[in-house]
Design a protein around this nucleic acid. Structure first.
Lengths: 130, 130, 130, 130
DNA sequence: GTGGTCTAGACCACG
DNA sequence: GTGGTCTAGACCACG
């Protein structure tokens, strides 16, 4: 696994940055279902952060269905399918998009510009082989 | 002005919810440039929150260029043009979209689905008369 | 007298802006010793501000020795010499310059740059005929 | 860090005095990039003022780029370069110098005297070793 | 232990 | 009446 980069000066708490980076890694297929992740201690040590911080990220990812945490086998990316697009998720997504879009509208960005930005970011995740 | 609704249980701080709702109001043209907003104390009282919480929202909106705050005349929506789409804003927007999009990809949402959701939200802000 | 311009959105209170503009007018010799100023009411009306605001500016200018206020003759620029450079004034000036200079040093401005800026502003007040 | 002195009778708000003193400390190299500052509560207690007052000063300094605020590590002087001399700053500086200079001219101070005072204050910040 | 958020309440400057 | 400043005190998130 590529070592993930943290911004300790960011307003985003470290545990959330770790969670987001791992999700990004999965989306980029740098991390694949069934793949093992470093132990809480190992990752904490690598990142130079508190064990509790990594643990919190892992627990949240487990809760969301991205990870399995075995007492013995350690931490692995969920091998049997990622969490799905359910109604809860859709609601949450819309609620988080809403203020981003409101602001873009206020600032005079066109729908096309906004969609273009999303499109560009989505492009990063396209299957290379297709 | 339509009274804005707060979710006191949300993990989004109240002052941020107020800020976002006001930006949404501007985007929806429910609030127009030059229009006055309730005084810090009046809005706080309406919302059942503390004066300082509203003041923090107003100060952030002023800082971003959405509001003018007169010591005596009170608070008005910036009459001379909203803040623009500058590089700082674009960077911030992309950084906030990135984790939303990563997660949608993980969950198997297609680009089309994601774009559709954005498109629908953007549609709420379209000029009715045009 | 040239009508002075106010910035109602400025953080500087209006009475202070009026006071500063009148001092600037004197420094620029647009206002000369013995010259009459508009009455409190007249100036307030011209500027579209409250009478008390103009009155406060005038009172402060009188207190500092820039103006005479006669009940009958009205308001005139002090005809018998401007206030002098006394120790009180020097102290106050240094105390107000100190934070400006500290910040310029922090930001990496050289002494020459800072002095140059002062020099340029001072140049605006030079006697045209010399 | 040398404990900074406040003037509770000054018409400069306490939070601004704190801000200015810290900038002065940086300019004097009593505070160096990367150095830690006392926690909000510790400094408040030392100064005998409220936590929120210190916090406001810290937030403004963060906003201007003088400080980093870590949620857990506390407050440190920006280690990667101070804010720069940009156009916004230059405008603000000139606008603040203008009334000081107007008044000095009114009072009959010569350009040389004014420049001398600036020069003397600037001298306090010169590198001792050079 | 640190900053972040929020409250309740006070006095002041401005106009 | 408005925002600006300040206080005293509380609980929470982060690590």
């Amino acid at each position: 696994m590529v070592i993930l980069e943290l911004d300790l000066n960011s307003d985003t708490p470290i545990y959330l940055q770790i969670k987001e980076k791992i999700i990004e890694g999965i989306a980029l297929k740098q991390l694949v279902p069934g793949e093992g992740l470093p132990s809480v201690r190992a990752l904490a040590s690598d990142l130079g952060v508190n064990m509790h911080t990594v643990n919190k990220a892992y627990q949240l990812l487990k809760q969301d269905g991205y990870l399995l945490i075995h007492r013995q086998k350690g931490v692995v990316i969920q091998p049997e399918g990622m969490p799905s697009v359910d109604n809860d998720y859709l609601e949450k997504l819309k609620n988080r998009l809403q203020p981003l879009i409101s602001e873009s509208v206020c600032r005079g960005m066109t729908s096309e510009q906004f969609m273009r930005i999303c499109h560009d970011i989505l492009g990063q995740f396209e299957e290379k082989g297709e």
